[in-house]
């Protein structure tokens, strides 16, 4: 790990960036920036909130902790990792962004993301729309029965929930069962024709994880563990995440 080339006297010892370096493999290469700008030149978030990835990293390196932990830009970067992909030094700017999100007081983080996370914590579905397990099971069974009848070629089609020992544990974005249930069907048909052994879970079925986007580590771990446990309890071999 290279030493930082920039030392600013008079600033406090513990920079935000130093804390992030401690938790990343190889320190996220955060000290290796050549200031080339490849990250910023190919980043769709460049210019939003008067910020870009290169500028954000340089500000972190300069110890401008207050600015980097309050800029709303961290909620406009999608952490898509294109900056890492094009960086000659593979610097992990998205992890800086994620951890900057985490420094915001929870009640000041974007309400829409926070509410979606809180909804997911209401019941074991993990759904950002708050849909309860029973409601999901009802919709899936209802839609399946409808299609088995209307399209007799698919009378044997299945949409299993909590099938023990199924090979694939498949999750499902909440939007389909809640607002456009017919959109679930084409995927069921493909799985049926391909002879795939799969199942949804009554718990942990929802694919979205807004607690992750909220940078609420405790809650996103909880949500993830609910899904993983359901897949494990059913003895599934492969977790298929559709998000």
């Amino acid at each position: 790990m290279a030493e930082s080339s920039i030392k600013i006297k008079g600033k406090k010892e513990s920079f935000f960036m130093d804390k992030v370096k401690e938790i990343l493999p190889e320190g996220g290469n955060l000290n290796l920036c050549l200031t080339c700008g490849a990250c910023a030149s190919g980043c769709p978030a460049t210019g939003l909130a008067d910020m870009d990835p290169r500028k954000f990293l340089r500000m972190c390196a300069m110890g401008m902790d207050e600015e980097v932990t309050t800029t709303p830009w961290v909620w406009m970067c999608t952490m898509c990792q294109r900056c890492i992909y094009v960086c000659p030094m593979k610097i992990d700017i998205p992890q800086l962004v994620f951890n900057a999100r985490g420094t915001w007081p929870r009640d000041q983080r974007p309400k829409g993301i926070r509410d979606s996370c809180d909804m997911a914590l209401r019941n074991p579905s993990n759904s950002a729309m708050g849909t309860a397990p029973d409601d999901f099971v009802f919709v899936v069974e209802d839609v399946l029965a409808e299609y088995q009848e209307a399209q007799p070629e698919f009378a044997d089609m299945v949409a299993p929930i909590d099938k023990e020992g199924a090979h694939f544990f498949l999750n499902q974005n909440s939007r389909e069962p809640v607002t456009e249930p017919d959109e679930m069907v084409p995927l069921w048909k493909i799985l049926h024709l391909a002879g795939v052994d799969w199942t949804y879970g009554s718990k942990g079925w929802a694919a979205e994880n807004y607690c992750l986007f909220l940078a609420d580590n405790q809650c996103w771990e909880h949500v993830t563990r609910v899904s993983a446990k359901q897949a494990d309890d059913l003895g599934c071999k492969v977790f298929l995440n559709t998000e």
């Binding site: 210019g47 939003l48 709303p72 406009m76 952490m79 974007p110 829409g112 993301i113 979606s116 909220l214």
Partner: peptide
């Protein structure tokens, strides 16, 4: 492929409330 531009739908952007910025981001896509 691996070098694509993100469309701006990820990372919670869709629910963040920064709608104008999200669309400015998506203009490239």
């Amino acid at each position: 492929k691996s070098n694509n531009y993100c469309c701006g739908g990820g990372g919670g952007f869709l629910q963040s409330g920064f709608t104008e910025e999200r669309r400015a981001y998506g203009k490239k896509k």
